[in-house]
Design a protein around this nucleic acid. Structure first.
Lengths: 332, 332
DNA sequence: GTGAAAGCGCTAACAG
DNA sequence: CTGTTAGCGCTTTCAC
């Protein structure tokens, strides 16, 4: 691999001059410019990013930290981040935290040592203390974790209300909620949305809310218990689509027909929801747009552009598929 | 951030000495060692990986290139790679190629400039020509693409036979195949396995094989056409689980009952297959083990250990769930 | 306009 | 055993 020195020698100039044409910075005679460019071409010279980074302290890499890469929501998000970073000639590094602060911290440490230019973090457990002394730009995605860190997320509260409202509209008389982990901000908002819709209804009692931890299996088990204790539940709003699949499974196991006997509405709008039987009615977030927005935002911060807002909330949307339909109680 | 110089000054030694205790290499007096260690602690010094890399040409990073991060198979694989790289103090960079040589090449270029120590590549389109001049270790995963590149994959051919055999055993009389892309090696092997089992059967005709391109939607459409043309098909071996979900969908759309009227066997053993209704009978690969093996293999190559074998084939296994069951034709 | 030289933070001869 | 020094490949003052 040729170095800048080789190019300089070949073109009969100094390395400084080569560097100047490389970075299009400083004066350089048109003729020598041509000469240098020619040498670069001839030698197939590629600047060494690393050496560059060592000096400039910019690596053109960003880190994306997500809690669970096997939840399809995050690959879809990652896909957006990838496209934007690529388009801007950046590289992104995907990190999986399992929602463990320790792993998050570790990744941040490792990546900072590699001079990454910024982080996009999906986290519930990280606080400013962990970020202390980091002057690397950070944007929060999907879950906001510190007031002064720009955050891109969906309108979780409103989405939850939308979901419950829909279940109500199609005639459900007793609506339960399978929630995400308590420590996850968006799960809280979704829960709150649910509660604000049903808390004053006569059918409501606190044990209509169970915890599924954003995991399929946990959701399935929690739902089995829920449905056994309350056989008259006819609608469930589930905190995310992955868990909703678990709820679907639970219903199947108990031989409860969806949507005839039980209507289910999920949250997220991941592709997985289209493929279940019945296909999942859900509150869809603009996943790709959110990922892209977060990435663009981060790039702007990296490039020193001022960030106007600190909170970007994306609208959500009810997607009617099969798991929640107007049924027999339509007349209501 | 303190540098090695700061530590040297603090400990009243030269940078060389600090470097020596850092790398545990060369002689250094126990007392001065202590002293240096103390300074390192006091200053909370962290060696700059980048500067190190520039000199050693080793970055402790590897690249993982996969064709489609939104196919759950690959996150599961990535998960294994992540765990192993972390355990060995490496970082991995995930790249998505969309099965496009151009993107693959581009990623390889970019990452090489960042001095990554090795690549794990899932590809069908890359050839040695593209890797020419790369003296970075490479291992192929899931799909072998060049004879002299070590490859970790599953026994696709045998798995396919297993699948067809199972369909046969439970009484299927007319077994079709939804294949993956022709240019993908493992898809070829699976197709061959199928053909070797059925080519001499009276029911067989070439149009029992359709192409689903390893995509859910394509598989669904292809299957709709297939089932319309051959309503008497009672068993389908599908090239991967993702497509099998599409096949399930197709059957549902046509009001064909699975497994009562039609048995379906997939391939891969991804978690998604447990969550469909009916749950997917499939040929499971040891996905995590394969990912881990490939990573360990790559690490060994990076560390200069000799590689004994060049082909690591993992056994596959029939996982019986609900989409293929002994049905009415059991008596056969 | 262009080149010499210092330096980004670290490693590895080479002396002593 | 330890320090001096020359790089790794690039960028950027500062002279000329």
């Amino acid at each position: 691999m040729p170095t800048i020195k080789d190019v300089a020698k070949h073109a009969n100039v100094s390395v400084a001059t080569v560097s100047r044409v490389l970075n299009e910075n400083g004066y350089v005679n048109e003729d020598t410019r041509e000469k240098v460019l020619e040498s670069i071409n001839k030698l197939d010279y590629q600047p060494n990013e690393l050496a560059r980074t060592l000096y400039t302290r910019r690596s053109r890499m960003i880190g994306l930290i997500v809690p669970d890469i096997t939840n399809p929501f995050f690959p879809e998000l990652a896909r957006a981040v990838e496209d934007v970073t690529n388009a801007k000639n950046y590289t992104f590094i995907l990190c999986n935290s399992d929602d463990q602060v320790l792993k998050e911290k570790n990744y941040i440490d490792v990546l900072r040592k590699k001079y990454v230019d910024g982080f996009i973090i999906v986290t519930s457990t990280l606080t400013n203390d962990h970020l202390e002394g980091i002057n690397t730009p950070v944007v929060a995605l999907d879950r906001n974790f510190e007031p002064d860190i720009p955050c891109v997320s969906a309108d979780n509260y409103h989405g939850a209300k939308l979901a419950v409202e829909h279940l109500h509209n199609i005639g459900c008389k007793k609506i339960a909620h399978v929630a995400g982990p308590e420590f996850v901000m968006n799960a809280q908002h979704r829960l709150r949305g649910y509660l604000d819709m049903v808390a004053d209804k006569p059918f409501f009692s606190e044990d209509l809310v169970v915890n599924g931890d954003y995991h399929l299996q946990n959701a399935k088990e929690a739902t089995m218990n829920l449905l056994k204790a309350h056989p008259d539940i006819d609608g469930i709003f589930v905190g995310n689509d992955l868990m909703a699949v678990g709820v679907l499974k639970a219903a199947e196991t108990l031989a409860i027909k969806v949507p005839d006997q039980l209507s289910i509405v999920g949250f997220d709008g991941i592709t997985l929801g289209e493929t279940t039987s019945p296909a999942l009615t859900t509150i869809a977030q603009p996943i790709y747009d959110m990922g892209a927005k977060a990435t663009n935002l981060l790039m702007d911060m990296i490039e020193g552009k001022p960030v106007e807002e600190t909170e970007y909330t994306f609208p959500v949307q009810l997607v009617e598929r099969e798991s929640a339909k107007k049924g027999m109680m339509l007349s209501e």
